[in-house]
């Protein structure tokens, strides 16, 4: 008969095996909403990991990611924004960030031209200890590049926030956390449904509805765990082996 302590022990061992090599005692970063934090295994986002926000354009995920970046950029750490010109894809517009109270003195915008340069710059920024968070809209990302970026984030202790199209859902991923954001029509305020698609060491499949007000995020309702979805993500290692093999 498994005792609760045994299960807790095993869970810790598993987390150690598959989790990042960040110190256990480090305080988790809040996403800016306590109810959303509660869905995450450590009560928030962890430094040195990647977070993917899956959403269509105009759905509000960029704003949620920017709010999370603000938490990671406390204590004088910088925010690096990757802003590459793509056809039919809009570019980052800083005045909106300023309206949310961002300080440009700690913001660096990288306007690279080629995809190769962007990946290199992303790797360098994630590797830097002076950077709190890296904010990047990424359409395509190869598995090997993804793994490289994940190692870079782990090395620098930075939080990588990647905005990705909703169509990449189900693709192999090295992100510790994958959140899908869908807007909801609502008579008042801006309502978003955030779903935990995959989550290392935590429960996936849960979702929460938030209403964004001028001051922050307020939960509307939360749905419980969906038993059809696997609790743990399928490891990306298998995919990587197939790709390199």
């Amino acid at each position: 008969m498994p005792t609760p302590t045994l299960i807790a022990d095993l869970r810790q061992q598993m987390a150690k095996l598959e989790g990042s090599r960040q110190p256990e005692d480090e305080e988790p970063l809040s996403t800016g909403c306590r109810e959303l934090d509660r869905l995450l295994p450590r009560g928030g986002l962890a430094r040195g990991t990647l977070v993917e926000w899956l959403a269509d354009q105009g759905s509000g995920a960029g704003m949620l990611a920017l709010l999370a970046a603000r938490q990671a950029c406390r204590a004088g750490r910088a925010l690096v924004v990757m802003d590459r010109q793509r056809s039919f894809y809009p570019r980052f517009y800083p005045p909106a960030a300023a309206a949310w109270g961002y300080d440009f003195a700690q913001m660096l915008v990288i306007r690279s031209v080629s995809e190769e340069d962007e990946l290199w710059a992303l790797d360098q920024a994630l590797r830097c200890r002076g950077v709190g968070a890296v904010y990047a809209p990424l359409l395509q990302l190869g598995v090997q590049d993804f793994r490289r970026l994940q190692l870079a984030a782990e090395c620098g202790g930075t939080l990588g926030l990647f905005l990705r199209p909703a169509t990449v859902r189900g693709d192999p991923s090295w992100a510790d956390l994958q959140l899908a954001v869908r807007p909801r029509a609502s008579p008042a305020g801006r309502r978003l449904c955030v779903e935990v698609v995959r989550c290392r060491g935590g429960t996936a499949g849960r979702s929460i509805e938030l209403t964004i007000t001028g001051t922050g995020m307020v939960p509307t309702m939360s749905t419980s765990h969906d038993p059809d979805r696997p609790t743990y993500p399928l490891p990306a290692t298998a995919e990587l082996a197939r790709a390199t093999g």
């Binding site: 990288i110 340069d117 830097c128 950077v131």
Partner: peptide, 23 residues
């Protein structure tokens, strides 16, 4: 560390690619 990062980025991508927004 951050200033070293800026130097590296500006050296490879060019100084016009590493920017700070000004309202």
């Amino acid at each position: 560390d951050f200033s070293l990062l800026i130097d590296r980025l500006a050296s490879r991508l060019g100084p016009t690619a590493v920017l700070q927004p000004v309202l």
